[in-house]
Structure formats: structure tokens, C-alpha cells
């Protein structure tokens, strides 16, 4: 099966978006490996959910 092409972060235009699981709600979201911007999913890259989990708003800072 062909691997899905990585998505370049539309904000910093450099990093790749990786799938991450929220430690609070357990839902998957996307995070840029360069600027750490977060996205709910591939279909809502133009929406700004703030710095927290795009599903529950929990703090996801390392």
C-alpha cells in the first residue's frame, strides 16, 4: 500500500504534519514537526484551533 504523502505545514511552510494523540481526550490530531502548530485533521488545515488540542483544548505543550 502506498504511503500517504506527508503534508507540509501551511503556517511555517517547512515542517511536516505528524499524527499525535491527545493525552487528555485520546483523539488524534496533526502537529507540525517544525513550528508545532496543531491541526484537527487533513480537512481543516485552514482553521485555527489555538495552541491546545483541537478536540478538547487541553494544553499540549511539551
Amino acid at each position: 500500500m502506498k504511503e500517504k504523502e506527508s503534508i507540509i505545514c501551511p503556517f511555517c511552510e517547512e515542517g511536516s504534519l505528524n499524527r499525535v494523540t491527545c493525552k487528555k481526550c485520546g483523539q488524534l490530531f496533526l502537529r507540525c514537526d517544525e513550528c508545532e502548530s496543531v491541526y484537527k485533521d487533513r480537512g481543516s488545515l485552514d482553521k485555527d484551533y489555538g495552541p491546545g488540542c483541537p478536540h478538547c483544548g487541553a494544553d499540549i505543550d511539551s
Binding site: 503556517f11 511555517c12 513550528c35 502548530s37 489555538g50 495552541p51
Partner: peptide, 9 residues
């Protein structure tokens, strides 16, 4: 500049 999620690029 552009802004998103509490960050400015």
C-alpha cells in the same frame, strides 16, 4: 507576518 495558534511567523 502571519498568526496562528498563538504564534507569529
Amino acid at each position: 507576518e502571519k498568526e496562528r495558534g498563538g504564534k507569529i511567523a
